[in-house]
Simulated assay, not measured.
Amino acid sequence: MADRMRLRDRCAVITGAGNGIGAALAHRLAERGCHLALADIRPHDLEATRMSIRERLGDASPPVSLHTLDVADRDSVAALPEAVAERHSRVDLLINNAGVALGGTFEQSSEADFDWLMEINLLGLVRMTRAFLPLLHESDDARLVNISSLFGLIAPPGQTAYSAAKFGVRGFSNALAEELKRSTVGVTVVHPGGIRTGIAQRARAPQGASNAQVEREQKRFERLLRMPPARAAEIIVDAIERRKRRVLVGSDAKVLALVERLMPVGYPAIVERLAR
């Protein structure tokens, strides 16, 4: 096996590919000649991603297929590998990127909203992994890439559901990597910090919150989202090529990961001061 993973003429499945990090990853992989099976719950966003790739690369654009998908829908996830196989001869890369956010504390969050987030951010990722592992095992050099978060390393207040899911992604990925280490399937878990995506605007608000409260929280959160998705995608794709097990994206993720390791109980006070 080569020192670096060769991406040209391989095929990548990307969830949440209609915007943000997912769309940026599609661009970076297309530039490297990787074929793409793009999945998202919003078909018009998927089409926009495909069109922007074509506009950028022209005749050099690789084959791209679009798949409308809700990762919380078990039947849709189970049917996706066959749909992808009909359009592509292989699957070498699965990037589980789809995710949502939920505002409010645990007591402000309804059970239905908490379960909604877990179904997408954790269980959807697990379902996608289970569905595509047989195809990944058929590849001579495959990789599973799971997008966790900075909040899979630290757990701030107001992020109980999101942190529970992203810590779950981290644990699942690390254990699976050990189980697969003698196979041709490698595992990478990614912890992005503040990436400038639309996740804050699309976050589900807690029940009973006023419009003013929701807007205030969105603006506070958006101040922390600084890195352009294109830069985050370049870091992630480089890590895939280098077969890295863990990727910290952004100086905030790197600094806070270190702080948490040094002060696993006392780090919240430092995080609070940094946020101010």
Rank of each mutant, 00 (worst) to 15 (best):
V84H: 01
E272F: 04
F106K: 06
P229L: 02
L66G: 08
A200N: 13
S251G: 14
S76K: 15
S65K: 11
A48P: 05
L150P: 06
Y162A: 00
V189R: 01
D9C: 10
R8K: 15
D75P: 01
E217P: 01
R50G: 03
D45V: 02
T188F: 04
L150W: 03
L46M: 11
Q159C: 11
P81M: 00
R143I: 12
E86P: 00
A12L: 07
S163A: 14
E138Y: 06
L262G: 06
L80I: 04
A98H: 10
N174E: 15
Y267G: 01
I53A: 10
R130V: 04
R32F: 00
D3R: 15
S183D: 10
F172H: 10
R245M: 01
A233Q: 05
A155L: 07
A17G: 05
L133H: 07
Q213T: 13
A232H: 03
V77T: 06
G266N: 13
M128C: 12
L180W: 06
R28E: 15
G124P: 00
A275W: 11
I21C: 00
R231T: 11
F172G: 02
I21V: 12
V259L: 09
L80M: 13
R226L: 09
V249S: 01
L133R: 09
F151T: 09
S61M: 09
Q207M: 09
A161T: 08
Q108C: 02
S173F: 04
P192C: 02
R242A: 12
T68P: 08
A17C: 10
L180I: 10
L135P: 00
T15Q: 09
T68K: 13
L262T: 11
T68Y: 05
A205E: 14
L29R: 08
A98D: 08
D252T: 13
K244N: 08
E82N: 13
P228T: 06
E272K: 15
R204F: 01
L36F: 03
P264K: 14
L93V: 15
E178I: 12
T68L: 02
M5K: 14
A275I: 09
T105P: 04
L46Q: 05
F114D: 05
V91R: 07
L248V: 06
R87K: 15
A209L: 07
N19L: 08
H191C: 03
G193H: 06
L224P: 00
R6E: 15
M51N: 14
D73S: 09
P229E: 04
R182L: 11
G152Q: 06
R54S: 05
